[in-house]
Simulated assay, not measured.
Amino acid sequence: MTHPRKSLDTVIHAPVRFSIAAALASVDEADFKTLRDAIEITDSALSKQISLLEQADYVKVRKAFVGKRSRTWLSLTPKGRNAFSHHLAALREIASWDPLSDPES
């Protein structure tokens, strides 16, 4: 039997990126400031992690002006939602896995 950790998504697995994906999984879209405050990190840290998620096609970034101010909205792509779902399933499998009672281990 293959250990369930091999199913973890290395892009999402980092704690901040996992927190971003978890927060975005519960909404259609979130603005940058709200997400930053919710996961309690700095603007620069969030920007860096969003860039990595965007490169993996897990997060979509939408920018627009509200009045004279630029605003940024973030959402999980279908690929990102799927990756997050599979990552959660792998974590649950690891948490419930009992290798000592598995006759194949």
Rank of each mutant, 00 (worst) to 15 (best):
K60P: 00
K48F: 08
R62Y: 10
S47G: 13
T2D: 09
I20K: 05
E40K: 12
L46W: 04
Q55G: 07
A38C: 04
S75K: 14
L52M: 11
L52V: 13
E29I: 13
F65V: 14
Q55W: 06
S75W: 11
S85L: 10
D43A: 15
L24A: 04
F84G: 01
R81Q: 11
S51R: 13
S7V: 00
K68E: 02
K48L: 10
R5K: 14
T10Y: 02
V27P: 01
L24D: 00
E54V: 12
G80E: 00
W73D: 05
V16H: 07
L53M: 15
E29C: 08
Q55R: 13
S26L: 15
L76W: 07
E54K: 15
D9T: 02
K63H: 05
T2W: 03
L74K: 09
A14D: 12
A22N: 11
S70G: 05
A64Y: 12
A64F: 12
Y58T: 01
T77D: 01
W73L: 08
I39H: 04
R17Y: 03
L8E: 07
P78S: 10
I20Y: 04
R17A: 03
A64T: 10
F32N: 01
G67F: 09
L8G: 03
F18G: 02
V59W: 01
L52K: 14
A25L: 13
R92M: 13
Q49E: 15
L8P: 02
H3T: 10
N82I: 09
W73R: 14
A64K: 15
L53D: 03
G80W: 02
I41L: 10
G67D: 08
D57K: 14
L8Q: 05
L76M: 12
G80T: 03
L24N: 01
R71A: 09
P4T: 06
H87A: 08
S26I: 11
R5I: 15
S85P: 00
S19M: 13
K48W: 06
K33I: 12
K68T: 10
K79W: 00
E40G: 07
V61S: 05
F84D: 01
K63V: 11
P15L: 04
I20E: 00
G67M: 12
F84I: 09
R81G: 09
A21M: 09
T34C: 02
S47M: 09
S85E: 06
D28A: 13
A22C: 13
I12R: 04
K79D: 05
L91N: 01
F84A: 04
H87G: 04
D9Q: 03
L91F: 00
I41T: 13
K33P: 00
K63Q: 14
E29A: 12
T2A: 09
A38W: 03
D9S: 06
Q49C: 11
L91P: 00
F18T: 05
E29L: 15
K68A: 06
V27N: 14
I20R: 05
L35D: 01
S44W: 11
S70W: 11
A30K: 12
H86N: 11
